[in-house]
Design a protein around this nucleic acid. Sequence first.
DNA 1: AATGACGGCAACCGCGAAAGA
DNA 2: TTCTTTCGCGGTTGCCGTCAT
Length: 260
Amino acid sequence: MGRAPCCDKANVKRGPWSPDEDIALKTYLEKHGTGGNWIALPHKAGLKRCGKSCRLRWLNYLRPDIKHGGFTEEEDNIICSLYNSIGSRWSVIASQLPGRTDNDVKNYWNTKLKKKILASLANNNQIQQNPSLITPIDVPPPPALPSNNAMFNAINIDPSMFVVDPFQEMSGTNSSSQNNSCTSSSRSNNSYVAWPGEIDGLLMDFSFGSSPYDHVFSNGGYGGVQEKVIVGGEVSPPNLGVWGNSIDNNSQGIYESVTY
DNA sequence: AATGACGGCAACCGCGAAAGA
DNA sequence: TTCTTTCGCGGTTGCCGTCAT
């Protein structure tokens, strides 16, 4: 037997909210607050709506501090960075964006941002088509470590960053049962190493420690090497960011698909 | 002008967590 | 401790406007 419905669906209005309903809900909430009970609220406010529907309407649309309109580049970066590290926890991501709701962020990610990022990554994979693009380059000086408050702003997810980092010497040791997985050796050697086979993606660094490019933003990473693997524009399973709680904004190397 | 495809977004659904009796 | 109720969240749906044919 299933769970009892939160309201009598036969007697509640559904679908888009009318301006009158918006006014009724907003007026009531501004005067009385939620009273800690959304289920009882619609009756008190004179609305024929489900309490959950009222809550959603208020949180996602009627709240006075809601920010409508397009997302900024800075917000894009925050969303990408957090999605990278914590996955689709939209409420947490939205909490870092004043005036934005989890629904907004989720919709924005699903309809625009995801495509934008994947398209950029796909462009980067043109190195697959033209391996001569892979050349050793000088290591630029590391950026200053940002303060905690500035950490999100400091994470530049511009995909062009992914190819700035010199390709690292990599070992093929694989400790994972997942295919499409590699580990990387020490970063101390910035020399280019010929990579056998095709280049399928780029590795992002989740480790902490010795590299001047390791920006430990939170509590530091786990010991050892933990990598984000991006394969052909798609992020490989398991979930994004599950291996580390710190990230930096540089790829650690190129990546080859290996199936074990 | 009509129609279909597509994208954006508001709203709904159902589940797990939290709170309280 | 257990059960019930409510909240909060993420996934999904479906409506509506826009664009292409």
